[in-house]
Simulated scan of single mutants.
Amino acid sequence: MRERVFGQGRDNMIRRTARILEIIQQIAGAPGRWSRQKLAEYHEVSERMIQKDLELIRHRLGLELRHENGTYFFQRLPRVPTTVYPLSEALALLMAARAAQAIPGVNSAELAAAIARLESIFPPSLEHLVQEAIDELPRRAVKGHRQTMLTLLH
């Protein structure tokens, strides 16, 4: 995905990568809803840039992106394999996901679903302790809360 375009800096590449990932999420979350024009308006780029992004998704990433009646959908998306986490890693992931809720620009519905799945892997005997730790996390990312967040994550 490291396509080099003349005059495009690192920031533009990061923004493009983020846009491509978001386009994949948008199309996967609402198949048949997103047209090239709607995507261009939403991301505030040209339809030509969206077309390049869609081609990258289809050809370089190998996702089965289809176009029908002016909108896009995925024929099939790859499944992520099930993973087993040690308790410490699962707790760190849950805390990081909860902390991400304080960051603007993160898709809140998908993040909430991911958090619910993460919370469900903890044994019932730990639910109360996990919830207590999560409740202590600050709700906003403010400079003064960084130490609190780091302490809780540790």
Rank of each mutant, 00 (worst) to 15 (best):
I23Y: 10
P81F: 14
Q37W: 00
S125D: 15
Q26A: 15
E132P: 07
A109R: 13
A113L: 11
R140P: 00
E68P: 01
M13R: 14
W34H: 10
D53E: 05
T82M: 11
G32D: 04
R4H: 12
M1Q: 15
E136K: 14
L91I: 00
S108C: 15
R15F: 10
H59R: 11
K143A: 14
E127V: 11
I57G: 00
Q8N: 03
R140C: 01
P78K: 03
L111N: 02
L91W: 02
E55Q: 13
N69T: 07
N107Q: 09
A99P: 04
R15M: 13
H128N: 14
T17P: 01
E132L: 14
I27F: 05
E41C: 13
R10C: 10
Q147Y: 03
A133M: 12
V45G: 03
R33H: 09
M49E: 13
R2V: 12
A90K: 02
R117Y: 07
L93M: 10
Q26C: 10
Q75G: 13
M13C: 09
I115V: 09
F122H: 03
H128E: 12
Q131V: 03
R15I: 07
F6I: 13
R36T: 04
G9M: 09
R146F: 12
P31A: 09
A90Y: 00
N12D: 10
L39E: 00
A40S: 11
G32N: 09
W34D: 12
V106H: 05
L152T: 04
V80P: 11
P31E: 13
T148K: 14
H145R: 04
N12P: 08
T71M: 03
W34R: 08
K38P: 01
E41Q: 15
I57F: 01
P138Q: 00
L61K: 04
I50L: 04
A18W: 12
L153F: 15
F122Y: 03
S46A: 00
M1T: 10
T83E: 09
A116I: 06
